[in-house]
Design a protein around this nucleic acid. Structure first.
Lengths: 301, 301
DNA sequence: AGGTATATGACAAAATCGCATAATATTGCG
DNA sequence: CGCAATATTATGCGATTTTGTCATATACCT
């Protein structure tokens, strides 16, 4: 598979014939025909039916044509990006911080109130993203410092300092029968509607295995991808969820309670920055403010 | 530029040398070296500095390496998609919906409570993403339906039906002097700390121009990228923000008020789905539940 | 019969790739 | 300090593969 072949697929879908596609692409008709055949061979799938000497797009062609479009758009973006980098642009000094989406309502505002008191002139940019995205954006120097879950591997050229930890807890509505238990295990969740996050992520797979070992089939009602939405769904009675106590502590204001989910898994959280690039004074101070806010948010009342 | 070259870039960033990259990729060292040179020539940019006979990644390499990764991931997805199409694989039916991050706390849970009452057996997956990301994910068939701002262009092969609208409002803390005004204009925001979103997006650029035309320099204290964090920052007294009334209505529970920001811009919001693929009954019902929840959220009390 | 469209044989040009080697730098040891 | 060993990138060269065109065969429709 190569980029020219994907352009052929896109153009064939748009024009309907090899002759028209050839004209559009500045190639010979036979060249287009060969490239189509080569792409079909590479993908081991028939993209166009040959019906009485004419090409008819198969449903597979339509489906994969979209994938091809995505690839070609990504290629265009890369080319544009390269051009932007060549021409260069710069702005005033700011500090850019990446945080999980769970932190926008209370944690981040409180942290910034604290920070801005001491650094009134600094301009802040906040990104609420997933751990994976923050990892990437720190590596790309789009973000100066980023709070993320430590899940083993970070990108190349990134340093992560551990700043917090948590353990797995089950979050249930305040008035739920399960709220009366001291601890909750997979066995307690038989036939209980679940709201789960992190599908296909390592911690989620470990959780799935805990259920499997307990011989309990998960009754997943809602999959989502943020701790915040999981807590909100629990508060609304849509099910119970299993997340880290670190995040659960950020949602004490919701009508939910948390119980240790046994056996408990541990989660570590860190602050990521690019290796080899010392933080500016402003950025280091924001890092300090973040850690003060972590202390406050995890304090047991 | 070709796919093999992008793999070379990715592998070089990961391994640091042509010898290691060659080993990883099953190529010769000289082949890797040539492909890197060819890619640099194609992009007209230096990706690696040659420092004493060794390659040192430039910032450009790190930035473009992310683009390359996106392309390669898209290629992998296409290959996997082709394989799925060949094998005719299918799983349990679920509905996957994309929503802005602003909706996780109240809107989404309420919508799902409503929906699940009528469709108890359907499994839901929620993605809280930006308009751009939702656009992409709908196009890639990762998301079945996605709520997004209508900003002119959607991806190819996507249909967007308008389902809501809003106007620009200034969100200020309840007890702020500006709360006493009936309407707020750029002139009223001279020397007022601002919390703004959507930097480099079209609507934000239009807003910037409004300030420029009024001769008012923006005192941007915080840049962020979600309506929810903007409202939270305003509630904490970190500044005032200008967002759509549609989103402001989702945060009436915060100690903030909204005033028309004049001259008022209008925003349209739509529900996106893939063109040519009719929604399943379950997906259509979720679309209906979303629109009912929109009616409820925008009701004036 | 003429027009339209795709597929294929033959061939040339371009690109890819590996081998061998040159050039440069670092490291360890006497 | 000098030298050998090792590590790394870049380049000349040749073989192989891929790309792409020309000419033409084949099929279908009017």
């Amino acid at each position: 598979m190569n980029i020219k072949q994907l352009e052929v697929l896109r153009t064939l879908l748009a024009t309907g014939s090899t002759i028209a596609a050839a004209k559009t692409m500045g190639l010979s008709q036979s060249g287009v025909s060969r490239m189509l055949q080569q792409l079909e061979q590479d993908l081991s799938i028939t993209l166009f039916a040959r019906d009485k000497g004419r090409l008819i797009a198969t449903p597979e062609a339509l489906a994969l044509g979209h994938d091809a479009e995505n690839i070609l758009l990504a290629v265009d973006r890369m080319s544009s990006h390269a051009e932007d980098l060549r021409s260069g642009a710069s702005g005033p000094e700011i500090v850019r911080i990446g945080l999980p989406s769970s932190m926008w309502e209370n944690f981040a505002p409180a942290m910034l109130v604290d920070y801005i008191r001491a650094f009134p002139g600094v301009r802040i940019e906040t990104f609420f993203e997933s751990t994976t995205a923050i990892n990437k954006l720190v590596g790309e120097r789009v973000i100066d410092i980023g709070f993320l879950r430590m899940e083993g591997e970070t990108g190349p050229g990134i340093v992560v300092d551990k700043v917090a930890s948590g353990t797995s807890v089950c979050v249930v509505p305040k008035d739920h029968p399960l709220a009366e238990l001291e601890t909750i295990s997979a066995k307690d969740l038989r036939n209980v509607p679940l709201v789960l996050i992190g599908r296909q992520r390592p911690n989620r797979m470990a959780l799935d295995q805990q259920f499997a070992r307990a011989g309990v089939k998960q009754m997943v009602k809602i999959e989502t991808h943020t701790n915040s939405s999981a807590c909100a769904y629990v508060a609304q009675g849509l099910g119970v969820s299993i997340i880290s106590s670190f995040y659960a502590n950020l949602y004490r204001h919701l009508p939910v309670v948390q119980r240790p989910f046994v056996p408990q898994a541990r989660q570590d959280f860190g602050l990521a920055r690019a290796a080899g690039f010392p933080l500016s004074i402003a950025a280091q101070a924001l890092s300090d403010a973040l850690q003060r806010q972590i202390q406050l948010s995890q304090k047991i009342e």
